[in-house]
Amino acid sequence: MSAVVPDGAGPDDARCAALYAALLGARLPTDVLIRQWMARSDAASLVDGILQRLPQPGGLESIESIDAERHGSDGPVRAEWPPSLRVVGTVRYVAMVALALHEHGVWRSSRPASELAPVAAAMLPIVPDPWRAPLQAVLARAQVV
């Protein structure tokens, strides 16, 4: 997870940032929440767990079924959800973007790259090999098209 920990920033900075985030609660922009949350020690294991539940490239579950989940009434990223769920939802979303890029080479999204990039950067060191190229593509694109 070192990719998302700033140079010169220690665990105390992360805790202070978490306190500000707690004061702001759900009013905090999602990308700020994600950067904050990714500094936590348990972030890697949670991302890993999320990846385990997602279909692997070439697997049986289609991207359409994941997309249906995203757009359903319980879609993964909703502003009114508690911050922790918004973070989890966005991690899942980045994984979906990576999968779509891997399988189809294209993904249409209005989500800003600034929101997706930190999660993709955090996932890179821990994902299986087939995920790396699409995640790097997420990082490389100023706009995910």
Binding site: P6, D13, A14, A17, Y20, A21, L23, V32, R35
Partner: peptide, 14 residues
């Protein structure tokens, strides 16, 4: 105040 808290938080971000 809320805007200031977001700014303070940003000082602690990468």
């Amino acid at each position: 105040v809320e805007r200031e808290l977001v700014a303070l938080l940003s000082y602690l971000q990468p």
